[in-house]
């Protein structure tokens, strides 16, 4: 399982895209769903790329919490579930980092979404694939503007995630 997660963390996006392409192509096992060149296929590919990253970094941050914490929380009267919640809260910065890393991998990704989405205007074109297209057309100003928007979106989303992390959490 661990080896699978670590392999997934280094999975080249194009390979993930190719895998999803094969799965959802007309001759593939899920071809009958008709998801190829749709948002659904893009979501599947992005999930495949982000999940190992989030799982791997979360696992690393949970295991870095002092193993003596759990019995000490039990000794203070915590139920097993409360002790697990406390450990997760202690690892909160690592978990937050995993979400940001997963989001970063998805928002900056081109290869997989291009393969399984097809970069169809109005349907499956996203900022990254639009940047590639406009650069190829020689519309550098537009490509740069889209790049700035992408950066801005990433900044705003990460800021919201970090603000959300600081509030509304259960603190035993």
């Amino acid at each position: 399982m661990l080896a699978l997660i670590y392999t997934g963390m280094g999975l080249p996006p194009v390979v993930a895209g190719l895998f999803v392409y094969v799965l959802f192509s007309r001759a593939g096992p899920f071809g009958s769903l008709g998801w190829l060149f749709s948002m659904r296929a893009m979501i599947v590919a992005q999930t495949m790329l982000a999940t190992p990253l989030i799982a791997g970094i979360t696992m690393g941050s949970i295991t870095s919490v002092d193993p003596d914490l759990r019995p000490q929380m039990h000794a203070l009267g915590a139920t097993p579930w409360q002790a697990v919640s406390t450990i997760a809260l202690e690892a909160r910065f690592g978990i937050l980092l995993s979400v940001i890393a997963g989001f970063g991998a998805i928002i900056s990704e081109v290869g997989a979404v291009m393969l399984v989405g097809g970069n169809i205007e109005g349907r499956t074109r996203v900022l990254t694939t639009a940047i590639v297209l406009e650069t190829r057309r020689g519309h550098f100003a537009l490509a740069l503007a889209l790049g700035v928007i992408l950066l801005g979106l990433s900044f705003v989303t990460n800021s919201i995630i970090m603000l959300g992390q600081g509030r509304g959490r259960w603190r035993p």
Binding site: D68, Q72, A75, L76, A78, T79, T86, R171
Partner: peptide, 30 residues
């Protein structure tokens, strides 16, 4: 039953929060 017993460990592991939050922990889980 377990909550009638409390243990202080030789190497205490404190939560990465304030002193007050650490002292409050056992009361909050109750």
């Amino acid at each position: 039953d377990r909550r009638q017993i409390t243990m202080v460990f030789q190497r205490p592991v404190l939560l990465s929060r304030s002193v007050q939050a650490n002292v409050r922990y056992g009361l909050r889980v109750r």
